[in-house]
Simulated scan of single mutants.
Amino acid sequence: MDVLTEPFAVSFVSRAALAGILVAIGCACAGTWVVLRGMAFLGDAMSHGMLSGVATASLLGASLHFGAAVAAGAMAAGVSALQRSRRLGNDTTIGLLFVGMLALGVIIVSASSSFAVDLTAFLFGDVLGVRSSEVLVLAATTTVIVVVTIVGRRAFLLAALDHRIAQTTGLRPRLTEGVLLALLTLAIVSSFSVVGTLLVFGMLIAPPAAALLWTSRVSSAMVLAAAFGCIAVLGGLVISWHAATAAGATIALTAVGIFALSLGLSSLKRRPTSPLPTERTLVS
Rank of each mutant, 00 (worst) to 15 (best):
V3K: 15
V10S: 14
F12G: 04
S14G: 15
S14E: 01
S14C: 15
A19K: 09
G20H: 03
I21T: 06
I21S: 03
L22C: 11
A28E: 00
A30W: 00
R37S: 09
F41I: 09
S47E: 00
S47P: 09
M50S: 03
L51H: 09
H65S: 15
F66V: 04
A68E: 00
A74K: 07
A76M: 02
R87K: 12
D91G: 06
T93D: 06
I94W: 03
L96K: 08
L96C: 14
L96D: 08
L97F: 13
M101G: 10
M101W: 11
A103I: 02
S114G: 13
S114C: 13
F115G: 08
A116G: 15
T120H: 11
D126E: 05
D126N: 15
V130A: 04
V130D: 02
L136W: 15
A140G: 10
V144Q: 00
I145R: 10
I145Y: 03
V148A: 14
I150F: 10
V151S: 06
V151K: 06
F156E: 00
A159R: 15
Q167C: 14
Q167H: 15
Q167G: 10
Q167D: 08
G170P: 08
T176I: 04
G178P: 02
I188C: 10
S191K: 09
F192R: 05
F192K: 11
V194R: 08
V195C: 14
G196A: 12
V200L: 14
M203V: 02
L204A: 10
P207M: 02
A210Q: 00
L212A: 03
L213T: 04
M222S: 07
M222N: 07
A225L: 04
V233I: 01
G236F: 03
S240Y: 00
W241T: 01
T245S: 05
A246K: 03
T250K: 01
I251H: 12
A252E: 00
A252I: 06
V256G: 12
G257W: 01
A260C: 11
L261D: 01
L263N: 11
L263E: 03
S267T: 01
S267G: 06
R270I: 06
R270Q: 11
T278F: 08
